[in-house]
Design a protein around this nucleic acid. Structure first.
Lengths: 153, 153
DNA sequence: GATTTTGTCTAGTGAGTTGCTCAAGAATTC
DNA sequence: GAATTCTTGAGCAACTCACTAGACAAAATC
């Protein structure tokens, strides 16, 4: 019941990209160094986020990545689903990737105990993550002292 | 972000054991057949639940497994932790198996954005599963028609 | 237009986990 | 003591995770 490193790295990378939102682009190695992420692995993550429409990129000598949606519009739920797949703890309660369980004796019945319980869990997780915006997420970063920024200074 | 088959099978097995709670024992193959679970795999699960103190077993010709705690006292959270490990989506927010993240640049800082978000998720999951008793869980089973029981008839 | 600097794409890989199987042994009952 | 059941431990194929490597494509600069 864990999120993968992919999601973790992805979210940490977006933390950096939030900061330069509207401004300059960030290169893979900048993000990788600041967030302590293996650069080639990070690349795959950034590309996935790009394909999903969150990031834009430019190649060449002044290239890099940048956010193309406002941090207010992006939720942690979106990001995690892109990188880790559906949030649901079992696939028969997934809204985004439903799959009927093949071996469960309740599959054909009106109600399934597991579905009921796991449905609640799914809803709780989605409820938090689909309302947790990147901008709120990035706030916690500014809280700590040694990284202090002058916003738009 | 999925629960394993182990947890799923374990919970489904307990569904059967709830029904005979206080009465007769159930043998592996009975549970396996009714719940459509590979018997040798189920065995490992039952033994884990036994070691954790939820089940008792008797060997020999009239042997089998039985619940030794009341379904009111057992929560889904307990069962899942036994079979799947901690509920926390990342280990740096686990209450039962905390581990400081080694590579995260916020590990030494006062606050970590990821920890804050994932802490909320952890709490939500634990809040549901640690209050979801087996007796409530088993209720959904009785709801469906073709399995109708006369309780203590 | 050639070189350098970036991103893009595909494939591979070692370690670990999942989901299950097998076989030998120990307790219990009849 | 024979049959039946749980107990233990090992084994294993398939898959996933977290990276790594390398060839390629575009953009900027000289």
């Amino acid at each position: 019941m864990k999120f993968s490193k992919k999601s973790e790295y992805g979210l940490r990378a977006l933390l950096e990209l939030c900061e330069t939102y509207g401004g300059r682009v960030l290169q893979r190695h900048e993000i990788a160094e600041r967030q302590n992420i293996p650069v080639e692995f990070l690349e795959q993550i950034l590309l996935a986020l790009k394909r999903a429409g969150l990031l834009a990129s430019r190649r060449g000598i002044r290239g890099g990545y940048s956010l193309i949606k406002s941090p207010e519009e992006i939720t942690l739920g979106q990001v995690i689903r892109i990188l880790d797949g559906p949030l649901a703890p079992i696939s028969c309660v997934s809204r985004t990737a439903y799959q009927k369980c093949s071996d469960c004796p309740y599959a054909t019945k009106a109600s399934c105990p597991l579905q009921e319980a796991m449905g609640e869990v799914r809803d709780a997780i989605a409820n938090i993550l689909d309302h947790y915006t990147l901008s709120r997420f990035a706030l916690s970063k500014q809280a700590e002292g040694s990284y202090a920024h002058h916003k738009r200074s």
